[in-house]
Design a protein around this nucleic acid. Structure first.
Lengths: 342, 342
DNA sequence: TTGAAAGCGTTACCAC
DNA sequence: GTGGTAACGCTTTCAA
């Protein structure tokens, strides 16, 4: 059913009906009421593409999913959905296929210049990020989830990775650990750099020398967690504690520790970063996992909220939000074994 | 840049440019060539919403994400993206927020009647599924990922859950296990029902009585895997083997087994269903996990392919695809302990 | 092979 | 408070 036909059935003009449905103030309350009821009864809904054409709005926020299919992504999206529910704004997901023909920049460029999205969310930025530069140039509103040093003004939302890892590392140092390994995220991402910094600063505060052999970078998978941890545990003297970049990494670390006949929480302490997943919880691991925690879902909800503000005209360089991260101590952390103390 | 302006710069009419870009046969090869080059050079891209309005196509496939944010969902989406890459079709994700105001049916209804999507994918169907009935009634193409007995004709793609679990259970029976517990998915979903059937059939083949206390249903989380397994292990005689519905469930089961001082693969055998995740692999678990395996990503790619066929006019009731499932034996399965054999 | 013009279904600007 | 009407940017007959 089209507007014209629907309006005709009501004995009103398309104009009035359109206004009634869009909640314009000038239409009388009784008319609005009637139009709303009849729309439901007759099943009329505006054609979204006509609306988009005439208003110039795409009615969608774009999110480009990483090539690796990060498991955090869906949590973030659910968060966005919670906030977007009832806003009549869709989430357009452009996952980059693993063997993509187009490169990342092209995907962003196409999304924007063809008018598919009103705004974009940029994940896992780097200090110098071409995507940010591009989106700024294109003049489309966007929010960076994470931080970047790219010189153009941009809105961002990030968690305090540096502070989180600093505290985690400090805590391990408090417990007497001196050789603390860190399995960080992929090299080059700002969040990895921040975590590296948090780690090094904690060491420095105690005057402990930084040993580059103790820090490794890679994707957040159980496989890498396992392999890195195995190999780190072969060092002599071996590390007595691990800082793991993700829950999946922690799973791998737990396995590696066990496979060496060691016990997590006694021989080896572990702290991981937990994005809070409904299907995998730090609390339930055995032993329960000490973690720096920040809800990815909450970040998604807030990100959607901030994008809405951006769309509402709030200046991008006014939106800079840094979230503190909780440190939750559980059973996986304990005093360093006496023989390892310095 | 708009078509009119772009065409003007080329000294051509909008008509010709449009045809050249859309690959119509009547335009001369040299003109097409030139238009294509200039489009890239000047950065012209058709406004997608105008195209959509005039063609009546939405240029998007909808996928409604489950309320729980299932971790399988992103893998499926990446698969879709792989197939859709270069097709100029977007994936529109409507995650249902946890405390949703609208119900599921309304989400589907809105997606379709407002013209946001050309086709939809329905996940986790039930034998009687109102969504399927609705989409059929609305006349929109859709593909069911999973199976349903809903009487309207519909395209579907599913894996052989029943056969997979039958084989898994049979294998455990071959190993001498007699008390085999199954931690299945949520009750009511067709895939859970099929898995239940595969399990019961395997028992029946050997003339072993079905004990309802050994089968439980719930979401695929490590927490439920752990809690169910803990509680099942308290039975006397206790089960000597587990069939776990997902990798996350298996993680919980492993923990529960260990927490009882038992050893997976020796005291307790475990087989899980593995959707193949890049970040969590059955092979790397300790002990490595025997699994029924089917790639969720491949399913997503094929699903996108089938939807494209649907959009191309292939009749829905011609599209019924049932995928076999591999059974991969690793270290988590072994002979039943002698004292437990009957 | 190319071009002019009529829509596609809505919103929003002006009148009334 | 309500109703005409001109866009929105493109595709697609119909003519040339």
């Amino acid at each position: 059913m089209k507007l014209k036909e629907f309006a005709h059935q009501l004995g009103l003009s398309p104009t009035t009906v359109s206004r009634a449905l869009s909640g314009y103030p000038e239409v009388s309350e009784k008319t609005r009421q009637r139009v709303a009821e009849e729309a439901v009864r007759l099943g009329y809904r505006p054609n979204i593409n006509a609306v988009r054409l005439v208003t110039g709005r795409a009615g969608a926020i774009g999110a480009v999913m990483g090539r690796k299919g990060e498991f955090q992504f869906s949590e973030f999206m659910i968060g966005m959905a919670e906030r977007l529910d009832g806003e009549d704004i869709d989430i357009l997901v452009s996952p980059m296929a693993e063997q993509e023909t187009r490169d990342e920049i092209q995907i962003y460029s196409r999304l924007v210049t063809s008018g598919r999205v009103d705004a974009l969310i940029v994940h896992s930025p780097r200090p110098e990020d071409e995507r940010i530069r591009l989106l700024h140039k294109l003049g489309v509103p966007f929010l960076v989830h994470g931080r970047s040093e790219t010189e153009v003004p941009h809105a961002w939302l990030d968690i305090d990775n540096e502070g989180a890892i600093r505290r985690a590392t400090s805590h391990l140092l408090d417990l007497g650990h001196r050789r603390i390994a860190m399995i960080n995220g992929g090299a080059g991402y700002t969040f990895s750099i921040h975590r590296d910094k948090g780690y090094r600063d904690a060491l420095e505060e105690r005057g402990i020398a930084f040993d580059p052999r103790l820090v490794v970078h890679g994707h957040f998978t159980d496989e890498l967690g396992f392999r890195f941890a195995r190999s780190l545990l072969e060092q002599s003297p071996r590390p007595t504690a691990f800082v793991a970049g993700s829950m999946m990494t922690a799973l791998g670390v737990y396995r590696a520790v066990r496979s060496r006949g060691l016990v997590v929480g006694r021989d080896i302490s572990v702290i991981a970063h937990d994005d809070v997943f409904p299907y995998l919880t730090a609390e339930n691991m055995v032993p329960s996992l000490s973690a720096t925690r920040s809800s990815m879902r909450a970040a998604g909800a807030r990100a959607a909220d901030l994008v809405l503000q951006l769309l509402g005209g709030r200046p991008a360089d006014e939106i800079h939000e840094l979230w503190p991260v909780e440190l939750i101590l559980r059973e996986s952390t304990g005093p360093a074994p006496a023989e390892a103390r310095s």
